[in-house]
Design a protein around this nucleic acid. Structure first.
Length: 597
RNA sequence: GGCCCGGUAGCUCAAUGGAUAGAGCAACAGCCUUCUAAGCUGUAGGUUCUUGGUUCGAUCCCAAGCCGGGUCACCA
């Protein structure tokens, strides 16, 4: 079914031709929703057409309005305010849209077919030296949601994670564990493995600082001290051994990374995110190194006398960029080259999306150029979905200063809040403890996810740990609550054997019903817009608007107690459809909806 | 310093170049013998950082400036 905006655009273009003898592109016609303080549903901007009509705004509006009402069955009336032509759309049109939504369980989603293009979404991509924090949560939620949004737009999606499991930072934790660990394991430590390893990373940093301070006090410069501190020397040696496949180092590395993976797995599970394919930097970095060396051979990159390898991007307006260190080990971008190559070998990728913070804009600009220079046609087309940082009220989170908000702690705290709020309200009587805990989990994660996803991904956002995330107002639980109430009504309808009709009928609509139907009809466009803009926030804000309107309607009008049975059934159909859109919309955000709460 | 991003109510956030810039939180005032009050209704709260420009019309586009953040590593 063609959407109403399209219909209006086409007919206004027709009107212009018929009335003023000039053809215009229908897309030039500006149409928008009528603001609620005016009467009407859709508004046509007449101002831009005045040059063609050569008449006053009012006269032009009237002429076009008359034409539209006469020619277009969906348009039942119009009114004019200055240069705004407000059109009234016939109730039948809105009820038709409702019926489309009612009869389609995947309402708003474009089906994926064999011909669909394949999008690979890389997200999460953690380092294995410390547990996940709030910044990673934003990444994971955005990545998962973006993947769902792309699916709903008819793309095949492969979700991947590139685990940065090797490198100097991992060796730091390993060195510290050897020094101070006394054989401690997650079992003896009694906490998750990622937290254990993270603590040794912190211990390393403290040791490093001590050693630097000592060297400086003995007359070394800050820079020399940084280079010569015994622990960093040891760490560099360990990295070399690692690359040389030293058995002892590899064994330690495997063991500690194993602890971290177990920890990550648990965090991913509570967050409800997953991956179709996981790549490990330890598998891809050599491919990257080989590619860089090929680049040297082909004269794309330059090798210095100390045997470090560089790309000169001066011509592209960027700096020189190191690709291999003088000791031959690879740097961050080297593994990205290798990973990219491996991925395109594994999948017929049409679009590659990297979900990575905006602090790495430069990195991806460089990566794109390097891949292009290496001769990959997809190098230029990679898309860096760059999202903003999560900040605390007094600035950025800094792991070294202990101001990070730990992911596991945050989620556990949210679940506690959900539990206490729910117990206070006491609405879950008759549920088993297990069922209750399940709902607390759904609500807590709904609050957290919605809080993060409703914000425009591009923007830096602020999180205040002092004020825990709200459960009232513009929040996930607010929307989940509306869903639960709708399900309650539908259950009651079923119990009293009221059948929910497959097709809704009604001729007269009250104001709130009309606005609800209008919002319902928007959902497919919203999904498209979210895909085009790569923005889950578009979906979140839409669902909020829908729910707010529904609650207002729910408050003013009874559904099951409505005496007129055809109106009652119509309202049931509306409620059911709103519930479906909440569920579908929230599924795009990775948020579950509870039957009761 | 170069490049990139942002600046909207006390706070957190909305607003395809359109009409009187909207929500939530916080504050204040109301609404539960009626489908779940995690709800609904109202009051108050704004020089959309500043100054110019383009336009019938600018929070949005352009230019300059101010403020804040990011980035420019043989870290990842």
């Amino acid at each position: 079914m063609m959407n109403i905006e399209r219909i209006i655009k086409n007919h206004v273009a027709g009107a212009v031709t018929a009335l003023y003898g000039q053809t215009i592109d229908p897309d030039q016609v500006q149409v928008q929703l009528t603001r609620s303080e005016f009467e009407g549903d859709q508004t046509v901007m007449i101002f831009p057409l005045l040059k063609i009509s050569k008449k006053s705004p009012e006269a032009t509006c009237t002429e076009i309005g008359d034409y539209l009402v006469a020619k277009v069955p969906e348009i039942s009336a119009y009114n004019v305010v200055k240069g705004f032509l407000n059109l009234l759309i016939d109730n039948v049109f809105w009820v038709d849209r409702l019926n489309e939504a009612l009869s389609d369980d995947t309402y708003g989603f474009v089906p994926v077919t064999d011909q669909s293009e394949l999008v690979m979404v890389e997200y999460s991509s953690p380092n294995t030296n410390k547990p996940l924090h709030l910044g990673h949560i934003r990444n994971n939620l955005l990545g998962f949601s973006l993947a769902e949004v792309m699916k709903a737009n008819g793309y095949k999606v492969v979700k991947t994670n590139i685990v940065n499991d090797r490198g100097i930072h991992i060796c730091k934790s390993m060195v510290a564990w050897q020094k101070f660990g006394n054989g401690e394991t997650p079992l003896t430590y009694g906490k998750k493995g990622d937290h254990l390893v993270g603590e040794y990373y912190v211990k390393f940093d403290l040791l490093y600082k001590r050693e630097i301070a000592e060297l400086v006090s003995r007359g070394r410069s800050e820079e020399q001290a940084r280079e010569e501190a015994p622990c960093i020397v040891e760490t560099r040696e360990m990295l070399l051994k690692w690359e040389a496949n030293d058995q002892e180092v590899r064994h330690l590395w495997k063991m500690m990374n194993g602890w971290v993976y177990e920890g990550f797995e648990a965090t991913y599970k509570t967050l409800g995110v997953d991956f179709d394919k996981i790549y490990y930097e330890s598998d891809t970095y050599t491919i990257g190194r080989d590619e860089v060396l090929r680049g040297v051979k082909e004269g794309i990159f330059q090798q210095e006398s100390d045997s470090s390898v560089w790309a000169n991007l001066g011509k592209e307006g960027l700096d020189k960029k190191i690709l291999l260190r003088s000791d031959g080990t690879s740097v961050y971008i080297t593994q990205d080259i290798g990973t990219a190559q491996l991925r395109y070998r594994d999948y017929p990728i049409d679009h590659m999306i990297y979900v990575v913070g905006n602090e790495q804009l430069y990195h991806f600009q460089v990566l794109s150029l390097l891949l292009d220079k290496l001769g990959y046609k997809w190098g230029k087309d990679l898309y860096h979905f760059s999202y903003g940082m999560v900040e605390l009220p007094n600035g950025r989170m800094k792991s070294r200063e202990g101001t990070v908000v730990d992911a596991d702690d945050l989620v556990a705290g949210m679940i506690d809040v959900a539990r206490s709020v729910s117990m206070e309200l006491g609405k879950l009587e008759g549920y088993s403890e297990e069922e209750k805990e399940h709902i607390y989990h759904i609500v807590a994660l709904g609050a957290l996810k919605y809080f993060i996803l409703k914000v425009d991904p591009k923007k830096t956002m602020t999180f205040n740990p002092e004020e825990s995330i709200d459960f009232n107002g513009n929040t996930g639980p607010f929307i989940q609550y509306t869903y639960a109430r709708i399900q309650s009504i539908l259950r009651k309808a079923k119990e009293t054997s009221i059948s929910i009709s497959v097709k809704a009928h009604t001729t007269s609509l009250n104001a709130k019903e009309r606005s609800l139907l209008k919002i319902i009809s928007l959902f497919p466009e919203v999904v498209k817009e979210a895909g085009k803009a790569h923005s889950p926030a578009v979906v979140a804000n839409y669902v909020y608007d829908l729910v707010k309107e529904f609650n207002s309607f729910y408050h003013d009008h009874s559904i099951l107690n409505e005496p007129d049975l055809s109106i009652r059934d119509f309202r049931l159909a509306v409620a059911q459809t709103v519930g479906k859109i909440i569920r579908n919309g929230f599924s795009l955000l990775g948020i579950a909806v509870p039957e009761r709460m």
